[in-house]
Computed example of a mutant assay.
Amino acid sequence: MLRHSLRVRLLLPVLALALATVIATAIGLAVVQAHQVKADADASIKGQSVALQSLFSVTRSIMLERVHNSMRLLRQETDALGLPSSGPEVTVSGRQANELLFGNKPQANTFQVVDSVTSIMDGTATLFSASGDDFVRVSTNVKKDDGSRAIGTQLDPHGPAIAEIRKGLAFYGVVDILGNPYVTGYEPIYDGRNPKPIGIWYVGYKTDLESLDSVIGDSHVLDSGFVALFDSKGKLRFHSKTGATTDPAQIEKVSQEQPLDWSVDKQEVPGWGFTLVSAYPKSDINRIITRQTLWIGGLGLLVCLLLLGLQSVLIWNRVLQPVQRLTAVADQLSLGKWDNTIEEVKLKDEIGTLARAIARLSNSVRLAMERLSKR
Rank of each mutant, 00 (worst) to 15 (best):
R7F: 00
L10P: 06
L19H: 03
V22E: 03
A30M: 04
V32T: 12
Q33H: 09
H35N: 13
H35C: 09
H35V: 10
V50I: 13
A51S: 15
L52N: 02
T59K: 13
L64C: 03
E65I: 08
R66H: 11
H68Q: 14
T78G: 08
T78V: 09
G82R: 10
P84S: 06
S86T: 01
E89A: 13
V90H: 08
V92Y: 01
N98Y: 08
N98G: 07
K105I: 11
V113M: 10
V114E: 06
M121G: 05
M121P: 05
G123V: 01
T124Y: 09
L127F: 07
F128Q: 02
S129H: 06
S129C: 09
G132A: 10
G132E: 08
D134N: 15
V136N: 00
T140Q: 03
T140D: 03
N141C: 11
K144E: 12
S148D: 13
A150P: 04
I151H: 03
G159H: 03
P160S: 06
P160C: 05
A163Y: 07
E164N: 09
R166I: 04
Y172K: 14
Y172I: 05
I177K: 03
N180D: 14
V183P: 00
T184S: 15
R193G: 11
P197W: 05
G204Q: 03
L209I: 07
D213L: 11
S214A: 12
I216Y: 00
I216N: 01
G217F: 03
F226C: 04
F226N: 02
V227M: 08
L229H: 00
F230V: 01
K233P: 04
K235F: 00
K235A: 11
L236E: 06
R237C: 06
F238K: 02
F238I: 06
S240V: 04
K241N: 13
T246I: 11
E252T: 11
S263M: 09
D265W: 01
K266T: 08
Q267R: 12
E268K: 14
G273F: 01
T275P: 04
T275M: 08
A279K: 00
Y280E: 01
Y280F: 08
S283M: 02
R287D: 14
Q292G: 05
T293S: 13
G300A: 02
C304W: 00
L305S: 09
L305I: 10
L307E: 05
R318C: 13
A328R: 14
V329G: 00
W338D: 12
N340Q: 15
L347G: 07
D349F: 12
E350Y: 09
E350H: 09
G352F: 02
G352N: 07
T353E: 09
R356S: 12
A357M: 11
I358E: 07
R360I: 08
R360G: 14
S364D: 15
V365N: 14
R371Y: 08
K374Q: 12
